[in-house]
Structure formats: structure tokens, C-alpha cells
Design a protein around this nucleic acid. Structure first.
Lengths: 202, 202
DNA sequence: GAAATTAGATACATGGCTGTAGCTAATACT
DNA sequence: AGTATTAGCTACAGCCATGTATCTAATTTC
């Protein structure tokens, strides 16, 4: 905390602290977050942290709240299957980012889960955990590419759910082929379109 | 630690400690587990814990390792749909149990996730996170009720994945109707059988 | 350039968990 | 009954995080 000739203030300092708390939570977990640890990593004394936040979890939630929003899935040139795969890939990228991992950690931590506000949940959690393929499916349903009544809440969740489970089970990020398998074998059948990809039964 | 006239030993004591660590992790989270806290809840001094385990996470993993296995899903009187719903209900029950919640907490905790042995993963994690509908689907595929080549790894995961996502998103346990919607709108279409239940599009 | 703001440094009492040690006493073993 | 185990109790030094207070100095604002 000594050998920096310039002194950070405002936005710049806060950004450094947000980065620090996200890095810290990846390393030690939510339950072992401390003001001390965050301060050490951000190279700022604890006193600076206490001026703005009252507790390590507040710092973490604030960091998540100020994350840049993820890219929105886009719909391309009438390519439902390709758009779905791309939407899932966006989701994977987010889930593997520090923010995505922090969200997973928070949701299973009793102390922090209780502190997640409605607003934060909307902005960071819900919108990312379940909106990727939905956007795409909505678009093609509106275009009449498949019966709109098949787009139920359950169906809108299939892709995200399978990607999540895959990440939990294996920890390794799914390849594009894996994502295509999810689209072909689970999503497309649910909206009444037969699968096109190859299948490897178990 | 005073007003117990009998003194626990061996199995009985260990059971009490296992119960204590599972209760503790539900309340404070993995990262805030302490030998002190576990001992307090089990009404035994820390020294007793140190005689067997070297740190709180060892206690937790040991507790999970000694959990009773969950009930296996059974296949009934040629009722694929009903068997699938029952399999998912078994999974919900397990996921909401102390052991199920502890598993979720462990998987997102950097320190403990690293300590999960292959054996424990097999016995407690993998077998529970992904085996419920698979058993049922395998049975009916063998009976020729649907094309066996449709039973891919992705398809075997659909039900469990959607239940997991639902538990993460809303925290509330799904009703039997919710489970039936998952079966009708996601699993059955994927194995080539049309849905039978009512649908509510979004 | 002077005043106001705010980061950085240091200190301190408090409290909790750690890991170990040594003792007492209940239970099991033979 | 006598012995071996092992739970329960107490104590202790060490470490780390907590909050708070106080001072300094860098940076912004006017």
C-alpha cells in the first residue's frame, strides 16, 4: 500500500475494490470473505472500505450490481438452431466469468442469499440465469416458425437448465457440439421440431 | 455439556456430530463452519472433534459420506409418465434435505470443492444429481416403449436439470403439477412421445 | 493559492477460533 | 474387579478480523 505515487479516488478506487472482492470470492468463497482480505487485495486499508460498506457481503453485492450487463442474444438470418446455440454460448461465457461464479456462490450461501434485494435479483440473477434462449425462442414463435403455445415457462428454461447442470456436474465448459446436442435433443423436440443432429444413445 | 447423565461414545456420538455439522452448514454456510460451532451444536468439546478430524470441512465430508442412500426410483405398472413424476419427486425430496443442501453449498465453495474425493463424488453427488429419471427411462427404453437411441446423456438429464433450475430460481419446491409439466413439455417430447398435459404458453 | 474532501497509515481494545495440553470420569473390555 | 479407552472439562497462547479513532497527505474544487 506504499509504492503507489498516485492516490486513487472515487470511481477508480471503487472499481479496484469491486475487482478485488470478485477475485477474493473466487479464491476463498463467500463465507470467508473479510474486509481485511478485500482491502489487502485492493491495496487499500480497511478504513476506506468501512467508509462505504458495512460488511464484506455488501461489498460483493455492490460489485455485482455494478457489473456490465451481459451481451443480449441476437437473432440472425432465420437460423433458429444456430441462434439457440449462440444464446447458450453467451450464457456459458457469463457463467464462467467472475460475476457468474460469484452468483452461484451467493445463491448457496445462507447469509448472503438472504440479503439479495429484489432489484439485484432482477438485474443480475434472473436476467442472466434464464433469459438467453427465451429471447430467441420468443422471436421465432412470433414469426410463426413453431406453435407459440408450445413456448411454456418450462420450455423456455430447458437450455439454461441443461447448461447449468452440465457446469455443475463436470465443471468443464461445454463445447459447441455439446450445446448443439442440447438444442437438437431437448429444445427443438419440445417446440415440435425434430432433431437434426447425430445422436449417441447411452 | 453438563446435564447429560449418560456419556455418548462411538457411533452414537459420531451420529450426533454428523447431524450437527449438517445443521450448522445450513445455518452459516460452508465458509463459516468452525470446529467450535459444530462442537457447540453437538454439545461436545472441540477436543473430541480434533481426535477424529483435522478441520470442519473434513467433518462435513465425513457426514455426507455416511448419509443413508436415497430411495431408488421404481418403475410401476407400465406408467412411464407417472414413474417420471415420481422419480422427480424423489429428487426434490433429496435436494431439500440437509444433505442435498449441503451438497449444493459444497459445490460452490472453492475450499471444499477441491477436497471432494472421487469416491465421495460417485457415492453422494453424481448418483443423486443425475440418476433419478435415468433409471426410469432406461427401463422403458429396454421395454421398447420408445426408441432407445433417443435416450442420450442430454435427454437423461432434462428432468433433473429443470428441477434444479427451478429450485435455484424460485427456492420453492415444485408441486406435482410443476413436475408433470416438466415431464409433459420437456422429457416426453425428447423421447418422441407427444405431451398430454395442458399447456400455458408465455 | 486556500479550503474542502477523501485516501492512506497507524494504533488499539475486543472477541472468536485455533490447536494443543493435561486432567477427570464414564464406559467398554477381559 | 481391574485395565484400557475415550468423552468431557478447563485452560492457554497465538492469530486474525472487527470496528473505531486519529493523524497525514494527496487531490479536487472554488
Amino acid at each position: 500500500m506504499a509504492d503507489r505515487n498516485t492516490r486513487r479516488r472515487g470511481e477508480e478506487l471503487i472499481k479496484a475494490i469491486h475487482d478485488a472482492v470478485l477475485a477474493e470470492v473466487l479464491e476463498v468463497g463467500v463465507g470467508r470473505l473479510t474486509m481485511d482480505g478485500i482491502g489487502r487485495r485492493a491495496a487499500t486499508p480497511r478504513t476506506t472500505l468501512y467508509r462505504r460498506w458495512s460488511d464484506p457481503i455488501e461489498v460483493l453485492l455492490d460489485a455485482l450490481y455494478h457489473q456490465h450487463p451481459v451481451e443480449e442474444p441476437t437473432t440472425g438470418a432465420d437460423d433458429l438452431r444456430g441462434d439457440l446455440v449462440r444464446a447458450l454460448r453467451l450464457m456459458v461465457e457469463w457463467a464462467l466469468s467472475p460475476a457468474g461464479r460469484a452468483v452461484a456462490a451467493i445463491l448457496t450461501d445462507p447469509k448472503s442469499a438472504a440479503l439479495v434485494s429484489e432489484a439485484l435479483f432482477e438485474r443480475v440473477f434472473a436476467s442472466r440465469g434464464g433469459t438467453f434462449t427465451h429471447t430467441v425462442l420468443r422471436h421465432y414463435a412470433d414469426q410463426g416458425r413453431f406453435p407459440a403455445e408450445l413456448l411454456t415457462p418450462v420450455v423456455a428454461d430447458i437450455g439454461e437448465a441443461l447448461v447449468t447442470k452440465r457446469l455443475i456436474d463436470s465443471g468443464t465448459p461445454p463445447s459447441d457440439d455439446d450445446l448443439a446436442a442440447i438444442v437438437d435433443q431437448a429444445i427443438l423436440p419440445a417446440i415440435g421440431l425434430g432433431a437434426r443432429g447425430p445422436k449417441r444413445p447411452i
